[in-house]
Design a protein around this nucleic acid. Structure first.
Length: 260
DNA sequence: AGTTTGACCCGGACGC
DNA sequence: TGCGTCCGGGTCAAAC
């Protein structure tokens, strides 16, 4: 399940490969994940490829094409191969083909006229200049929920999912069940730094190696989660066994000693 | 209005 | 082996 770092790399590499190229006639296999009219894509030039939160956003002439991979979606850029069982649409790009699909059909592809309709509710990008300590601090004061849920709220900060939320809280030494408003000034600073540090580290390392969801990330190394999905394993700092609890229905991993 | 829960979906893990 | 059941995960809608 790709989050901000993985998508950032995917987008950057996809841009290098398809910018200024022309889309051919789309091969539609499963329209269920598509909203808007995919036939509008034919013959449009790809002007740019960007990321907005976890969205992959392709600017065309006058219209936009957007992908969200959710949990199991994928984007491959390949020479032609027969559609497989999970492909939803194949977009020809100048002799190559973007295969977009999802075995569980939760991923989405949208064709929109205005970018605003897609992104207006998204919160600030944690890697952008707009993400300041003050913004984080003010947002925390407004929220009544726990800190884990806060980090995953795309309307406040866009791009953090379950994996990096756990990793950020571990680095910041903050217990995931803590109410947002209970964090003191030092903890907010620590959280702010941890958000940036974890995301930047993951970006540098080519993201977390999960199930293959793209061929647009080549990695010789990868980000290794310290606590996420490591229930029962020793905490890398104090060797206390990592604990798993549910927060908002999501598996949440933390060290009960380091994160009080 | 803010927060929590359920639906969406289906492969894979697990149990019988 | 094979069938049935249950879980997970991000996001949105519905319920609280």
């Amino acid at each position: 399940m790709p989050e901000l770092p993985e998508l950032e790399i995917l987008v950057s590499n996809l841009r290098d490969r398809v910018k200024d190229k022309r889309l051919g006639r789309p091969i539609i296999i499963n329209p269920r994940v598509i909203s808007g009219d995919p036939n509008l894509l034919e013959d449009r030039i790809i002007k740019d490829v960007k990321r907005r939160g976890k969205w992959v956003l392709i600017s065309l002439d006058k219209i936009y094409l957007a992908f969200h991979l959710r949990l199991n979606g994928y984007i491959f850029l390949l020479e032609y191969r027969e559609p497989d069982d999970y492909d939803c649409i194949i977009l020809p790009v100048d002799g190559e083909y973007i295969h977009f699909g999802d075995p569980r059909r939760l991923a989405q592809m949208k064709i929109v006229n205005e970018i605003e309709s897609l992104i207006e509710e998204l919160g600030v990008d944690p890697l952008s200049q707009d993400f300041t300590l003050e913004y984080l601090s003010k947002s925390l004061k407004k929220k009544r929920s726990n800190i884990k849920t806060f980090l995953m709220d795309q309307d406040i900060i866009s791009g953090i999912g379950n994996t990096y939320a756990d990793e950020i809280l571990f680095l910041a030494k903050i217990n995931p069940t803590r109410p947002c408003q209970s964090l003191d000034e030092e903890e907010v600073k620590s959280l702010y730094k941890s958000i940036k540090d974890i995301l930047e580290e993951a970006l540098k390392l080519g993201g977390t190696s999960t199930e293959e969801f793209t061929n647009l990330i080549s990695r010789d190394k990868s980000f290794e989660p310290r606590v996420h999905r490591r229930e029962g394993e020793a905490c890398p700092i104090c060797e206390t066994p990592i604990v798993m609890i549910k927060i908002g229905g999501r598996g949440t991993y933390y060290c009960p000693k380091c994160q009080r």
